[in-house]
């Protein structure tokens, strides 16, 4: 799987390298979008010292963790929620006759490394936040765990969005609402939202496990909703559960695939 992904990604990277200008423009575009997000946070903190009880460095930490996870998931697997294009164009037929998982083929299709820019940007925000936070060594190990769990959660969402497109053709928009919407929601401490929203994001669509719950654990903060502090440690379990659901949905989608009439 990893070998195949690397192979396809490398092939597309070489193909993209033939158009360096477009590569540069797309990288720049990604950085501008990320820069705007960060600018919003700066503007907020120019007017106040705390956002829902969280200081600037804490918000930087939460923002950096979720955006790093999202940017990496998007770079590696974001294509999966554009599978309706392959269904419509008939290229999925071709992927299905090869001895490699169609998931990997769709994910790696037209891979361009330009999105690495967003990841570096988010990673820098996370690193700056962490160095200014003074997290005790006993809890800092949770940071890589939460980033990896976040990657898995976002990848599972992309996959669910892709699986939905085997049933509905208008699904890309719906799927984007969950994936890109999820990335935006997790930019801020979840306590800025209504408690019903936070409950939904904890128990239904486990976005709270991307950076909020594990972030509270790392920061040593009590949960405003009163959940125990070890809830944050459940991130890997939440991520794997969602991934299992996504994998089943994907398989069901492939079996239900109808191809095209011509």
């Amino acid at each position: 799987m990893i070998r195949t992904y690397a192979l396809l990604a490398w092939t597309w990277t070489r193909a993209a390298a033939q158009y360096p200008l477009s590569f540069a423009l797309m990288t720049a575009g990604g950085l501008v979008v990320g820069g705007l997000d960060i600018a919003v946070i700066w503007v907020i903190f120019a007017n106040t010292d705390a956002l829902a009880g969280f200081g600037l460095t804490e918000v930087m930490f939460l923002y950096g963790a979720s955006q790093l996870a999202f940017a990496l998931a998007d770079m590696l697997f974001g294509n999966v929620d554009r599978i309706s294009q392959h269904i419509g164009a008939g290229t999925l037929d071709v992927m299905l006759i090869r001895p490699v998982s169609p998931f990997v083929q769709v994910a790696a299709d037209r891979f361009t490394p330009h999105r690495i820019g967003r990841s570096i940007q988010a990673g820098a925000v996370l690193a700056v936040g962490l160095t200014r936070l003074d997290v005790p060594l006993g809890r800092v190990w949770m940071v890589p765990v939460m980033v990896v769990s976040g990657i898995v959660i976002f990848t599972a969402l992309f996959t669910l969005g892709g699986a939905l497109q085997f049933l509905l053709t208008a699904a890309p928009e719906v799927a984007n609402a969950f994936t890109y919407g999820g990335a935006t929601l997790t930019q801020y401490p979840l306590s800025v939202y209504d408690t019903r929203v936070v409950r939904g994001l904890t128990f239904v669509l486990p976005l709270a496990f991307v950076n909020w719950q594990p972030g509270l654990y790392v920061l040593g903060r009590p949960d405003p909703l009163g959940l125990p502090s070890w809830t944050g440690l459940l991130s890997p379990a939440a991520a794997l559960t969602l991934a299992a659901v996504a994998a089943l949905a994907w398989r069901a989608g492939i079996r239900r695939y109808r191809s095209t009439g011509s």
Binding site: L7, A15, D93, V94, I97
Partner: peptide, 28 residues
């Protein structure tokens, strides 16, 4: 098995034929 669709290529549109075949070699 080998599969050929007359109406649709199984090769990569943007790659030279030689690279496409090389990729097929690696995948198989």
């Amino acid at each position: 098995i080998g599969v050929v669709f007359g109406q649709r290529t199984t090769l990569w549109w943007d790659l030279p034929l030689r690279d496409s075949l090389e990729l097929v070699r690696l995948l198989y």
